[in-house]
C-alpha cells in the first residue's frame, strides 16, 4: 500500500459523521429550547380506575374517604389533593367553593396534615368538600400518581380517573374544568 491509499475513499462519509451528529444535537436542543417548559410529572393513572384505598376522616365534621365511595355511580366529581400547609391550595379555595355551589361534588384528600390544621384551614378558606380523607404518609397520593399539592382529579361516575389538573385551579381555568366534568359524563 502506498501513502496515498492510506486515506482511503470509503472513509469519506465517516468524516462528515461528527458534523451530522452535531447538527442532530443542535436540532434536538432547538426543539427543547422553544418547547414550552413542561415541569410537571403527569399521572399515568388517567383513564384507569381509582386505586383501592380507605382513608380516615381528616376533620371531625366530614367523613373520611374510600374508593368505594366513587363506585356508587352517579355524576362525575372532583377529587382535590390538598394540604393546609400549601399556599396555592388556599389560592384555589374560592374556585373550589364556586364549583361546590354549582352542585359539583368535591372530595378531598389532605396530604401530610394534622387534623386541627385541616379544620383551621377549612374554617379560614371555606369547606367545599363532602368528604375528606387524611393521607398522612402520601400513600394514596402515590397510588394515584400525584406528585404534589394541589392537584385535582376528575373522576367519572364509574370511578375512573378522567383528568388530572396539576397546580391550583385559577379563575380563568373554571370553564376548562367544567368542560372536563362534562366530558366525564359520557
Amino acid at each position: 500500500m502506498t501513502e496515498t491509499s492510506a486515506a482511503p475513499k470509503p472513509r469519506r462519509w465517516a468524516i462528515w459523521l461528527p458534523l451530522v451528529l452535531f447538527l442532530g444535537f443542535v436540532g434536538l436542543v432547538l426543539l427543547g429550547l422553544f418547547r414550552p417548559a413542561d415541569r410537571e410529572v403527569a399521572s399515568a393513572m388517567v383513564g384507569k380506575p381509582l386505586p383501592a384505598f380507605d382513608l380516615p376522616a381528616a376533620t371531625a365534621d366530614k367523613p373520611g374517604l374510600a374508593f368505594k365511595d366513587f363506585a356508587a355511580g352517579g355524576k362525575p366529581r372532583l377529587l382535590n389533593v390538598f394540604a393546609s400547609w400549601c399556599i396555592p391550595c388556599a389560592v384555589e379555595a374560592p374556585q373550589l367553593d364556586q364549583l361546590a355551589k354549582m352542585g359539583i361534588e368535591i372530595n378531598g384528600i389532605a396530604i401530610r396534615d394534622h387534623r386541627e390544621d385541616v379544620t383551621a384551614f377549612l374554617a379560614r378558606n371555606g369547606n367545599p368538600f363532602t368528604r375528606i380523607g387524611a393521607d398522612d404518609v402520601s400513600k394514596v397520593q402515590m397510588a394515584m400518581g400525584s406528585s404534589g399539592v394541589p392537584e385535582t382529579f376528575v373522576i367519572d361516575g364509574k370511578g375512573v380517573i378522567r383528568y388530572q389538573h396539576i397546580g391550583e385551579i385559577r379563575a380563568d381555568q373554571m370553564p376548562m374544568i367544567l368542560e372536563k366534568l362534562k366530558e366525564a359524563e359520557q
Binding site: M1, E3, T4, A7, I15, L19
Partner: peptide, 19 residues
C-alpha cells in the same frame, strides 16, 4: 459546526500517517 465542517473538508487531505 464550523470546525467540524473545516475538518470534513480538510481531513480527507490529511493522511493518517505511519502504519
Amino acid at each position: 459546526g464550523g470546525a467540524l465542517t473545516l475538518f470534513a473538508v480538510r481531513a480527507a487531505s490529511v493522511t493518517e500517517g505511519e502504519r
